[in-house]
Design a protein around this nucleic acid. Structure first.
Lengths: 122, 122
DNA sequence: ACCATAGATCAACTAATCTTGATGGGTCCG
DNA sequence: CGGACCCATCAAGATTAGTTGATCTATGGT
């Protein structure tokens, strides 16, 4: 069953997270497959952060963090908002749920040959 | 809520999939973050396959496939069974659900600072 | 206008991952 | 036993990803 996410103000109607293509899912998986980017995602799970907060919180060089933020943004996992000289990053609400749903679809589809295939190859 | 998977014969009591540590989740993500390994997982979602079937189905050199099978096995995503000269690989039933649950835990925890933080950094 | 700060981007380097072809160990069959 | 087949592993090279330090733009404060 597809996932609903809280819906943007002011209507509060839950948004349906759109299905990820295999290519999109691959991008997201690649983006998550790094310990630093995972820490960034965890930090952003606690709410919006600006880059200078993240460099402090994660103890990373600015350039290094910027590189990883770009990977996450290109994968659609995070979004950014500029305020004054600060750049605030946030988790894109549908992204992780989208991956979750994609995973569900990966596991479930047609168990055509579920048990052991007793006969050898040829 | 944690995931149940179909339980191994003959008792049929559903198995509870154990929580993945962050380190384990990272391994699984890294294993999935590759187009070839994703195709292997999709193929195995259709049931057990031996290596020679997979090389044919995915049109890969044996050595290349073997490399990726090892990555998937080390991540706990797939398991193997030898029968005669054939090696049969299957999806490890708990692995993908385990990652799914880990993802759920990643999204949900404490939205301490959910909205925009209106005040600039300093 | 000037300077300080936030952050993106770039080029050069290092490190990790993938690929390829070769080799070797099992297993089965004649 | 000898040969054919299935598969894992290894070493060398190719490819890709990540790091570092420097530079550049934009914003805001004085």
């Amino acid at each position: 069953m597809p996932t609903l996410v809280p819906g943007h103000a002011p209507d509060l109607v839950p948004d349906l997270v759109p299905d990820l293509s295999d290519g999109q899912a691959l991008m997201v998986l690649r983006a998550l497959a790094d310990p630093i980017r995972l820490r960034v995602v965890e930090a952003l799970a606690g709410g919006e952060r600006c880059v200078c907060e993240l460099t402090a919180e994660l103890d990373l060089a600015q350039s290094r963090l910027s590189f990883h933020l770009r990977v996450l943004r290109q994968a659609g996992l995070i979004g950014a908002r500029q305020q004054g000289r600060w750049m605030y990053y946030r988790l894109e609400p549908g992204a992780l749920p989208g991956l979750r749903d994609w995973l569900d679809r990966l596991v479930s589809p047609r168990p055509l040959r579920s048990g052991p295939a007793p006969l050898p190859c040829r």
